[in-house]
Each structure stands twice: as C-alpha cells, then as structure tokens.
Amino acid sequence: MTDQGLLIQTLVELADNLVDDFDVVELLSLLADRCVELLGVSAAGVMLVAPEGEVRVVASSSEAMRVVELFELQADEGPCPDCCRSGEAVINEDLATAGGRWPRFAPMAMQAGFRSVQALPMRLRGSIVGALNLFSAEPGALTVADVAAGGALASVATIAVLQQRVAAESRLLNDQLTHALNNRVVIEQAKGVLAERTGLSMEAAFEALRHYARDHNLRLSDVARSVIDKSLPPGALA
C-alpha cells in the first residue's frame, strides 16, 4: 500500500524541481528512485519518445533495469515499447506467462531477475511523451492504489518533459535571433565603412557587398566582417 504522506512529499519535491533551469534527466532519475521507494517495485525507469518518434532510455533506478530497457529498444519488444506505441498502460504482466506476447523480452527480463512488469504512459492529450516503467521481482506487485500513485508521478514527469521542450525551443529561437541580429549589425557596419571609404550610397554599398559575396560564393556576413577588419580592401568591392 502506498504511503500517502511520502507520495505527497515526493510530488512536492518534484514540483519544486520544476524551476526555470531544471535538468530534466536529473528530475526523471529522481522520479525513478522515488518510484522504487513509494511503490515497492524492484526497479523503475523512464523512456521518452522524441518529437521525431525515436524512443530513448532517459533514467533507470538500477543498472539491471537499464540493461533490460535497452534490450527492449533493441528488440523493439516489451511493455515499454508497447506502452509508448499505444499510450495504454501495461499492468502486472507476469513474465512467466508472457512468452507468447514477448518471446525475446520475457525470458531475458526473467534472467535479469524480474518477474512482473508494468508500464504507465506519460501522455498529454493526444501526444505520448514516454512511459514510466516499473519492474518487480515478484508477480502481481502493484495494487490499484499503487497504479494510481504511479499515474500521478507519471503526470508530473510529463509536465517536466514538456516544460523542458518549450524551454529548449525558446533558447534555440533566442540564439537564432541574437545570431541574426549580430549578422545584420555587421552588415550595416560594413555598409558604413564601405560608403565612407568609397563615397558610395548605403544602397550601392549594400549591392557591392552582395555582389562580391555572390561572385565569390561567400556568406554576406563573412564578407562584411572582412570589410570591417580590413582584410578585404574597399577597392576590391567597388
């Protein structure tokens, strides 16, 4: 039976970690460790589905778990790939009788010491973000309450992953914006240098920079930099 106090404490702890610059792998590793304590399973792990569709193991509470999860991905067979594909939970599947469903995964996982497996989907509306995987050494390890608690933990993990993706996208866009702005500044500066040294108008200076870049198969911003650092004499352009 799940300890309600510990569950709430864990949810608060996970939420506290959702600050501006949190590390999603660290957070999911914390989640995996807490699942083992809270739900009484032998091992826990998190797999994420990348926006392009590729599935990766992101966190595992033990090395045995990691090896089994990696095997699942290689064999493309097991509760985690099933859950990531369908978005449906796999609950208390007994490996001793699962040979039909997973002919390669079931014997491999049993050899690694596991007996029952579950995978809870990390899902927001239509999209499947990943799966929270809980493996036990005994059959039928999870109660209904455990499954509900695991679902709550999976929800927090889902929010963490989505928030991290928004942050990463924002960072990328901001980097692109700064880069584009810097390029523009360099080009405007070079127009000024060229206009002053040759007497060309700003528009004519820009045309000269553009022609030179095109004729020499160079980037406009690189040509501009060469004009500013004087490695390209104005006479070469005008």
Binding site: R184, Q189, A190, K191, G192, V193, L194, A195, E196, I228
Partner: peptide, 14 residues
C-alpha cells in the same frame, strides 16, 4: 533595430 546607428558606426570607424 537601429540599423542607421551601425551604418554610422561603420562610417565613423573609417
């Protein structure tokens, strides 16, 4: 985005 300021910077630098 103050492009004219950067054009002027280029001119003054020359």
């Amino acid at each position: 985005l103050r492009f004219v300021v950067h054009q002027a910077s280029g001119m003054v630098s020359a």
